[in-house]
Structure formats: structure tokens, C-alpha cells
């Protein structure tokens, strides 16, 4: 799957290069350094979100609230620092805490109330977005301190800070999912919950932690968003759950659980970034872009289904 995802990414880059407009000096706009940075920068936000999606989906869960929680985290951090005038680091703490708290609420209701994750996180999609709009009075909260702007706009060693943040988050997450007992238990849980329970894994605690991690990722993504645009934006991350889930699925995470890789998800996030950016350069309207992303999600799951069915028929 990872090889295939890489092939898709490569193919997409070739296509976008060919279709890209050309600058005055005959360079393809798509291939300019500044555009490539744009792609990575945009991918960083939903890349972090896609990592959260990878954790829950590989445990046979789902988190539809990712985009809304991103928005909630964005305004929560900004409100503490800008509206209440607290020290700059409360923008970080506030965003991460808001994200993790929303995730924990999801996890709590899913595990204690036995309400399907699909319903709980769909409800949270509405609740978190509404809360974000209430906190911010429906308007962006502008003017964050330099320390926060550094996280979104600086380029130490020429590389945008969000890319560093994504790399660190991805590295830690890869370690957790692929190499720790927690990761093994996550995949086993997604594969066969009975198996996990029978071997003594605390299924409830595991799920609780997974949804909290997912929320925390939305918190980190919200912080990056705030820092990039210098605004706590209540509409931040609108429809991003679509991007995040699609990135995870085309990266090889099994929608039905049991399989998932952070590396694959990073490739998936880049694919989504290239797709979006390429369509932008071709001046394709946002409406059509939404359609394209939705279609990619359905196609990815469809292909995966065909493949697994083919395998079990052998």
C-alpha cells in the first residue's frame, strides 16, 4: 500500500506539473520552491489532523469531529491570550487542552454510554463548531503575540515551523503506533475487539486514550492554524475531517480497523496537499475541489475493498 501511495503521489506530481501554468521565465509554477513550500505548509495542518484520524480509524473507530475541534482549539487558545490577556503560552496550552478535552468527551461517551463513535463524533462536530462560534462571538480573534506567530510563520533554516511541528508529531506518533504495546493493542483492537479483551487489554481505557489523542491532534492543528493566520478563527478547519480521513485511508489505514501506518498517512496528506494545490493553480473553483476530495475518499475505500475481497477469494 505504501509503495502504491508513493506511486500515486509521484503520478499526481507529474500530472500537476504538466497541467501547471508557466511563469514568465518559463518555469512551471507548480515546481517553484515557494509553491512546494505552500504545499507542505498546507499539508502540515491537516497532516497533524490525519495522524489523529489514523489512530482512531486503525482501532476501528472514527472521528468526524476533527475539523470542528480544530476550530474550537483555534479560538480557545486565541481567546485566552488576546481576549483575556493571559501570557502567550496560554495560546498553546488552551488549544491543546481544548482539543484533548473534546476528544476525551468523545471517548467517554463512546466507551461509557456505548453510543456508536459515528454518532458521538458527528454530534461533537456540531457542538465544537457551535462552541467555537460562541466563544469568539462569531468573529475571528486577531493579533497574537510574536511567540505564537513564530509557530506558524517563521522559517528556521529556511523550513516553515509548522513543518517541523508536523515532523515531530509524526515521528512520535509513528513510534507509538508501530513500536509500543499501546500501538500493538490499538491495531489488535481494531482487528478483533474480542481478541483484545481476551488477552487482557483494557479495551475501554484504550479507546478512551485513542479519542483523546485524536482530539489532541486537532488541538495541535488548531494551534498551527491560529499561528499561521494570526487569528483564532471559529470557522477554521471546516470540512478538514474529510481531508484528514481521506489522507489516512489513501495512506493505507484500513477503514474497518486493524491496519494503519503514520508513514502512509503522511504520504496520503501530501497527496491531498498536491491535489488541492494543483487544482488551485489551475484555478479550479473551491466547489469542484470539495467534490474531487470527496470522490478520492470514496474511490480509495472502494479500491481497498476490491483488493481485500480479491485477497480473501484467493
Amino acid at each position: 500500500m505504501r509503495v502504491e501511495s508513493l506511486a500515486v503521489l509521484f503520478g499526481l506530481v507529474v500530472i500537476m506539473t504538466i497541467l501547471s501554468p508557466v511563469t514568465g521565465d518559463g518555469v512551471r509554477v507548480f515546481l517553484t520552491t515557494s509553491n512546494l513550500f505552500n504545499i507542505i505548509l498546507a499539508s502540515a495542518t491537516f497532516g497533524v489532523l490525519a495522524i489523529g484520524a489514523t489512530f482512531v480509524i486503525s482501532s476501528a473507530g472514527i472521528d468526524l469531529s476533527l475539523g470542528s475541534v480544530l476550530g474550537l482549539a483555534s479560538v480557545s487558545g486565541a481567546a485566552l491570550v488576546v481576549t483575556l490577556g493571559w501570557p502567550w503560552y496560554f495560546a498553546i496550552l488552551g488549544s491543546l487542552a481544548a482539543g484533548a478535552a473534546a476528544g476525551a468527551v468523545n471517548g467517554f461517551i463512546i466507551t461509557r454510554g456505548r453510543v456508536p463513535a459515528f454518532i458521538v463524533t458527528l454530534g461533537m462536530l456540531g457542538i465544537a463548531r457551535g462552541l467555537a462560534l460562541i466563544i469568539s462571538n462569531g468573529r475571528g480573534i486577531y493579533g497574537l503575540p510574536d511567540e505564537i506567530l513564530f509557530l506558524g510563520q517563521a522559517r528556521p533554516w529556511g523550513v516553515p515551523t509548522p513543518v517541523f511541528i508536523l515532523l515531530i508529531v509524526a515521528l512520535v506518533s509513528h513510534y507509538i503506533l508501530a513500536h509500543t504495546p499501546f500501538g500493538h493493542h490499538t491495531l489488535a483492537l481494531g482487528d478483533n475487539e474480542n481478541s483484545a479483551r481476551a488477552t487482557g487489554i483494557n479495551v475501554r481505557r484504550q479507546r478512551m486514550m485513542l479519542y483523546t489523542i485524536s482530539g489532541l491532534m486537532a488541538g495541535i492543528a488548531g494551534l498551527i492554524f491560529t499561528a499561521r493566520v494570526n487569528t483564532g478563527d471559529p470557522t477554521a478547519g471546516l470540512n478538514y475531517e474529510l481531508l484528514a480521513i481521506t489522507a489516512a485511508i489513501i495512506g493505507g489505514t484500513n477503514l474497518f480497523g486493524g491496519r494503519g501506518s503514520i508513514l502512509g498517512t503522511m504520504i496520503g496528506a501530501l497527496i491531498m496537499g498536491v491535489l488541492q494545490n494543483g487544482l488551485n493553480l489551475m484555478a479550479v473553483q473551491a466547489y469542484y475541489q470539495q467534490m474531487a476530495i470527496g470522490a478520492v475518499l470514496i474511490a480509495a475505500v472502494w479500491l481497498d475493498q476490491l483488493r481485500t475481497r480479491g485477497r480473501s477469494a484467493q
Binding site: 504495546p181 500493538h184 493493542h185 491495531l187 489488535a188 482487528d191 478483533n192 474480542n194 481478541s195 483484545a196 479483551r197 481476551a198 488477552t199 487482557g200 487489554i201 484500513n254 486493524g258 491496519r259
Partner: peptide, 22 residues
């Protein structure tokens, strides 16, 4: 040893044997 075996089908043999005891 459960009647339905309680194995995790997508994980490899070794990981199944050590599941919960890594």
C-alpha cells in the same frame, strides 16, 4: 483458548502469540 479463538486476523502470528504481553 476461546471457541471463536479470539485472534487478530491482520496481525502476524508472532504478534498474536504475544498480544497483551509484549
Amino acid at each position: 483458548i476461546y471457541q471463536d479463538l479470539a485472534l487478530a486476523p491482520q496481525q502476524d502470528v508472532a504478534n498474536n502469540i504475544f498480544l497483551g504481553r509484549e
